[in-house]
Design a protein around this nucleic acid. Sequence first.
DNA 1: ATATTTTTTGCAAGCGTTTTCAAAACATTA
DNA 2: TAATGTTTTGAAAACGCTTGCAAAAAATAT
Lengths: 360, 360
Amino acid sequence: MSSQPDPNDIRNVTIMDVARESGVSYSTVSRVLNGYEFVKDSTRQRVLETAERLGYVANLQARSLAGGRSRIIGLLVPGLDNAYIGEVVRGIDEELARANYDLMLYTTHRHRGKEPVYVKTIVNGIVDGLLLIVPLDPVAYLKNLRERQFPYVVIDHQGFDDFSPTVVATNWQGAYDATSYLIQLGHRRIGFVAGTPELSSATERLNAYQAALYTHEISFDAALVQNGDFQQEGGYLAAKILLNLDVPPTAIFASNDSSALGVYDAVHEFGLRIPHDISVVGFDDTLQAAVMYPPLTTVRQPLMDMGRTATRMLLNLIKGQPPPNHRIVLPTNLVLRGSCQAPATTSVQSTAQLSERRMK
Amino acid sequence: MSSQPDPNDIRNVTIMDVARESGVSYSTVSRVLNGYEFVKDSTRQRVLETAERLGYVANLQARSLAGGRSRIIGLLVPGLDNAYIGEVVRGIDEELARANYDLMLYTTHRHRGKEPVYVKTIVNGIVDGLLLIVPLDPVAYLKNLRERQFPYVVIDHQGFDDFSPTVVATNWQGAYDATSYLIQLGHRRIGFVAGTPELSSATERLNAYQAALYTHEISFDAALVQNGDFQQEGGYLAAKILLNLDVPPTAIFASNDSSALGVYDAVHEFGLRIPHDISVVGFDDTLQAAVMYPPLTTVRQPLMDMGRTATRMLLNLIKGQPPPNHRIVLPTNLVLRGSCQAPATTSVQSTAQLSERRMK
DNA sequence: ATATTTTTTGCAAGCGTTTTCAAAACATTA
DNA sequence: TAATGTTTTGAAAACGCTTGCAAAAAATAT
């Protein structure tokens, strides 16, 4: 009985089966499935119905091979060991689900050389478009993507070209606000834990830190800027150097929350208290920030929103609708919590007591 | 010049191009690429070399359509809003990268009905195998997978059948240890914030809690068990009920770290201190646990390891090597941090003072 | 040198779709 | 009623790869 398909049949039901069952050609079935206009309504109904009845599910590979849409988008991330990435991915995932798209995840594990290879595979592969979160080496392959007219959107990195669709946060403004806040609290010696210099977000934050000092007429001391790596370990190391300075800072601005965690570690190791002895500010507002003790004052990035926005942009690009602006900038804002207060010595200069605690 | 391929050519280089360039048939190229044994060494060399030179990258869709391996595995997760999932995924990702596989991520967003649909799409799709993290409704489709001989491994759920390859942690033992620890500290009234009862991990933890009480001859009080949902909010609500009890507990064991966070919230809302007024234990040891204040004593699950192990199992399954055991159990262990101490009233029974603080 | 076996290779079919092109069916007009 | 125009449908060619089968080439045995 062809109308009684064996439910235990191992083979999948194809467009052919649906065609046979509904008495039309497979081309017609394909057209119905793709919403082609010129199909008789009654035919459409019948096909749709048998497809449903047979439990037909499109074979994406075949579809995409034949030139159709796969409804899969690729996501290239440096790594998963990071709450920050996780948040962005959540936003992407949410928006994708709403649009009925699936997600293919590529992790480069921070291996720079892997990026171009991945991108190549991705592009000649199944995905309809590509999302890149903080790419390490975009210039190496974005030009190619563009030439192929392959849809892509870059998240949280900019400045390497001026044609790539990009979603970023106001890194500069956020860092400026944070620094200004510390200054307004009375801090004059503010340490800065920098991020990976290849990333525009890192350099922007550093620039804003300097700009804020400048605006408030505080002279810049290069010793107060130490390199971190956007990870806890780097923050810890950088903070140790800062706290060992002859005149240590009364506040430390870490380039992201992970580094701030490292700063907390170092501060505690020196037997100091936050915020009493030293204030700390982070950047990102990941889940951990609110849970830390004391809760971390930090610059909130709308991470999920960035993911969502980028996804919407990409989906439009795939539909052939280029976005009005190539670059979308989302606002950050300073979240005040318990990790900051006015410096212990209300009068500014005498950090003498503090520096006595310095570790050898 | 056929030997000078245009680098700007939009079309991808195919197996045909490689064949033409190296003067063999496309089948031979395919064989070389798939490591087929009976190819003359010199031929193999030549093909490999031209493939490299031309920058050939296999088209996964075509390969998988034709019946080959896609080197992609699918991962079905309930959601991304959870540090716990993230950890497992990291383990998976790591192991997959090592084996040169890619990852396709499917999120059900905790929508039970979506699971079967997804599984169907996945199976007739591109992936070579499927990993399922805490599936909500496995019975609905695992039988089908098995019948099709489709490789899959279940992570952190068990008990719904006895043939599915599974990786779990010692949930029972972990919860038993945690409860015993609290009892040894002197606690007699121990609250329990339960997890989602559909998950075996949740019921096992509850059972172990009861077993530990029983072993130590502490009578079970149903009022001390409140339902949570494995999320912060549920933990908060459950803890509020517990703290409002006529004789509130002196310790609360939360079914996972997220719930424990909610417990912290409730405790603070009641103006109580951890661990001075009340001890708290969690489960999972996610990244947050160490950062919370006070640092959370919790049962560590080897999450990344679970991901890695499951992935290795799956990869073997795909290769046609069934694992020696269908079910792999990884050990948990209790991580002692600052959220527990002996109950304030060293003598056990008089919890009078505590209950006075009770909120109206 | 010839027959036989074994190793290598090529051809063709097929995987499940989309899409172009042309034919069939239907509706409309003269 | 014939001619013309439209809407619907079907057949066939791709898409890029794997694989069974058979032929060619090389190696071995007689």
